[in-house]
Write a protein that binds this DNA or RNA. Sequence first.
RNA 1: GCGGACAUGGCGAAACUGGUAGACGCAAGGGACUUAAAAUCCCUCGGCUGAAAAGCUGUGCGGGUUCGACUCCCGCUGUCCGCACCA
Length: 876
Amino acid sequence: MMRNERYNAREAERKWQKTWDDRELFRTKNNDPRPKYYVLEMFPYPSGRIHMGHVRNYAMGDVVARYKRARGFNVLHPMGWDAFGMPAENAAMANKTHPATWTYANIATMRDQLKSMGLSLDWHREIATCDPSYYKHQQRMFLDFLKAGLIDRKTAKVNWDPVDQTVLANEQVIDGRGWRSGALVEQRELTQWFFKISDYAQDLDDALDRLERWPEKVRLMQKNWIGRSEGLSVRFALDAETAPKGESEIEIYTTRPDTLFGASFVALAPEHPLSKKASENNPALQAFIDECRKIGTAQELIDKAEKKGFDTGIRVTHPFDPNWTLPVYVANFILMDYGTGAIFGCPAHDQRDFDFATAYHLPIKTVVCPSDQDPKTYAVGDAPYVDDGKIINSLFLDGMTITAAKEEVAKRLEEVSLNGKPVGTRKVNFRLRDWGISRQRYWGCPIPVIHCEVCGTVPVPIKNLPVKLPDDVTFDVPGNPLDRHATWKHVDCPQCGKKARRETDTMDTFVDSSWYFARFTDPWIEDQPTDRSAIDGWLPVNQYIGGIEHAILHLLYSRFFTRGMKKTGHAGIDEPFDGLFTQGMVVHETYRDAAGQWVSPAEIEIAMDGGDRKAKLLSSGAPVEIGSIEKMSKSKRNTIDPDDIIGTYGADTARWFMLSDSPPERDVIWTEDGVQGASRFVQRLWRLVSDVADQTPSDNAHDAAAEDAVLTIRKAAHRAVIRVEDDVERLRFNRCVAHAYELANALQAELAVKKDKNVSGEWIAAMREAAEFLIAIIAPMMPHLAEECWAELGHQNLIAETPWPKADRSLMVESDITIPVQVNGKKRGEVTVARDADNATVEAAVLALETIKTALDGKPPRKIIVVPQRIVNVVV
RNA sequence: GCGGACAUGGCGAAACUGGUAGACGCAAGGGACUUAAAAUCCCUCGGCUGAAAAGCUGUGCGGGUUCGACUCCCGCUGUCCGCACCA
């Protein structure tokens, strides 16, 4: 009997979700004896509704979770909400709601949406970072970090976002603009709380090499960000006649000590103490420094500013020649917070120094000679030479390589002393700065300290945690509502009892996401942030999946925070994520109407017009221009609402399409055709399984042809399972999809051959086994359809609780194999030989081929290369 | 400027550590079924020659290594990404 009923995704998905729920199938126990597997996708910000990027991210994670569960692992697959942050305050301002109301309403909506995807999540472990039961522990860890010396409070030049009216970390400034607001970032001096991530710069750098299951790209990005450089700090003696009172030296930092004989000036940052001192009796210099500071308000302007300097009049002595003096400039391109805030300039071999020397007519002395030039005559022309070569014009360094010269200079300067200390000291510098976490916002985790006029900065006693956010706040004016709250910040000092003031800054929301993966391992424990036995059992996360946009910020902070947790006893490891995968974006075509306005895909219709795709408005029929393919965004109106897709086609179709076609690390193009293709496969698979279920055997069907068919079916099924195993492990979901199609095609073809014919019991058994394998293969990707098909085959249990099929690898071993035969590297034929045939036998078989005989034309072959079981190449 | 990645049919792509290029899907074209449409099923589908068998050619471009190169090496072009006065 053939069935014509369609698979009803809406009904089936609801039914199976309820079944999984009722049986608490995805509730994970910490004391389960099976080996653990922790798979985590980056938790969402509760912005309002889920988008296709979420669907892709969580579909991938769910494939891994369901697959690992089937392979016998105790899988932890939790979900939570990165719930603090600016958008909640913006919404509060716009809609006169409270950030908490807005946030929790969004969470409720998005939780329902995620549930409709049929994800195998342990919802019992759900956390929201804005909940006092979460941020209480974060405050506790802040205090522990403070005690352990991992936190600093210092005045620093900070990145100020004038729109969001808050401080940004360096990592949050992109092209001189705020990462969220897009406003031009200004520089301001503020007293801030800092996590001392730079203390771990070396360790964070070293450990990257051991993160073998991280994408190379991410490791490289972090390496560049940490920016380790090896160099020499050199102390120059000031010429006594020109030095400001009380000053006798300048310490500079260089990575090119080998070019010391090419020095022509020393330059200081405008904020350098010596610059300030020199300007005291020098109004012109003072004016120059002021000008630098003015330009320094916007990062973008700094980047474009011309190189400018001002001669301080101070002179320094060259460390290798007491008779050689160099001028000291204040220059706008020297950064106070890198190295020592002072450099020596070697114009011949550095672009910036070259520009500077050209502008101020300073000497340009060549000291490095390229290997293809004559050292006696070589001199740089209108551009500096920055590549490798041999040292020239440098006395005792002449003829040395750059590396050798660096070493020689360091060695010599270490032995000379100035003011009782060595002139030269080897020094490693990092680009990485400390992580400023103070934010002048309401909707964040309060920093649990109290400022007392008598006692200074006093930690809030742990028993008083959490420091809860007050509910009664207003957002009618810019700035921090906590700061202007009538009562909240006024407290008594926990130490002396006198009137004191709460810290009104809250923590950067990246702190919240720096340890949520740890809290998931035991989100119930109340007196500690983590339960050590739980965290030690579960961490590190085996597979972490998320967007490349977090390659630096979130991932670097989490790596630091985990080290901090280790130091304070809250964790036992350094690296939180063993395997990392960064998935690509979901992109879609864009459309514009005649007026150039963006039009959403839902408003148009696409038809073929003589081989060209033409779009027009559904409402008026007016033509619409089909534009480039872009990341889905509200501004370009090229988004597709997951709810619409799930409502129309079902979650399985959406998941299947997200996993098919494009490799997961690449962008996937969302197309209506593609979704329909996925939907067709859902229906096809359902028909296929139903047809297999309906087969009935007849007694007299056993024959040799049937035996062949049984073997063919079994091979196809077992091969598919083996391949999917391999590809899921490597997260190559697009290939998993292809294997499923291939097996489905094979089964369908076999059914067509046997249509209206008698079939044997053996044949039916093979077909059922193959169908079951096929269901198992698709189950991690399309879990609802898989359950429905599983039940259709008469199973009483769930596929979600059925172990992964055991593939028989011996089925793949053939006694005879067919291998290609090449002539001069071009395929010319095939030969079938015994699997274990020796090379001589294979050669004989190849030479017997007609095509080879023709190619040889009676002459003996020059050479025959036999790669056993692979290929034969005849060289003529 | 520095660093990195990528480049394969009309499209998304596959090809394990060098060994039959284009699996699988989408689109397109043709056909079957139908009063018709949808759905479904069958066939074709890199280019050129050919009725076919088959042959030649083909993985951005130019070289090289090799019996054999999408894969390795050198040079170029293009696209994308990260960092950007870091001494």
